[in-house]
């Protein structure tokens, strides 16, 4: 199970859409190529500089728009450990869980910190901690249906597990 997520903060605003995460021009590319275009149109340095454990911290309605699963998948492929937001667009939220990327609904996320802050999220303790500023935010537990998928690492491993059961 994913228990700890630790890295730098990438700060985003409200209503970040899935087209800017993975543009329609690129979504048929293999993930190894596609991930290099993540956020290209709004944060061109993102794909180069994101490191394993980093966290996206955003405002409201993160992931609005298209149902493309490449959006959370590209973030995960770049090592993003979790997305923490005030609220999510529903399909992005489901898709993140479905690929094993924790999408954490966290009141106050928009003021958690700034780009480059060192932060950590713990699903077990249900806390997000900004180590740079000392700020700590609590979030609600994931419902059982989602936790089961997250614990497996996503739907694909879950299907494998069901197949072998």
């Amino acid at each position: 199970m994913i228990s700890k997520i630790k890295g730098r903060v990438w700060k985003f605003g409200d209503n970040v859409d899935t087209d800017v995460m993975t543009s329609g021009k690129y979504i048929n590319l293999p993930m190894d190529e596609l991930k290099g275009h993540a956020f290209e149109e709004v944060r061109p340095e993102f794909a180069q500089k994101a490191s394993p454990g980093d966290m996206i911290v955003a405002g409201r309605n993160f992931g609005c728009g298209s149902s493309r699963e490449t959006a959370p998948a590209a973030l995960k492929a770049l090592g993003i450990g979790a997305v923490v937001a005030e609220s999510f667009a529903r399909i992005f939220y489901r898709n993140s869980i479905a690929i094993g990327l924790p999408a954490i609904i966290c009141p106050g996320a928009a003021s958690l910190g700034n780009d480059g802050d060192e932060a950590e999220a713990s699903l077990a303790d249900r806390k997000v901690i900004n180590h740079t500023t000392g700020k700590v935010l609590d979030f609600q537990a994931f419902p059982d249906e989602m936790l089961r998928v997250l614990e497996c690492g996503g739907i694909e491993p879950l299907l494998k597990q069901m197949k072998n059961a």
């Binding site: 149902s67 699963e69 399909i91 898709n95 479905a98 690929i99 739907i155 879950l158 299907l159």
Partner: peptide
């Protein structure tokens, strides 16, 4: 597996978009 699946509500269906992993499920 498309966000505009919701269109079918024009005929009274509860229809919603999901991603491809959930569709595999």
């Amino acid at each position: 597996a498309d966000s505009h699946t919701i269109s079918y509500g024009a005929l009274g269906a509860a229809a919603s978009g999901i991603g491809h992993s959930e569709m595999a499920y």
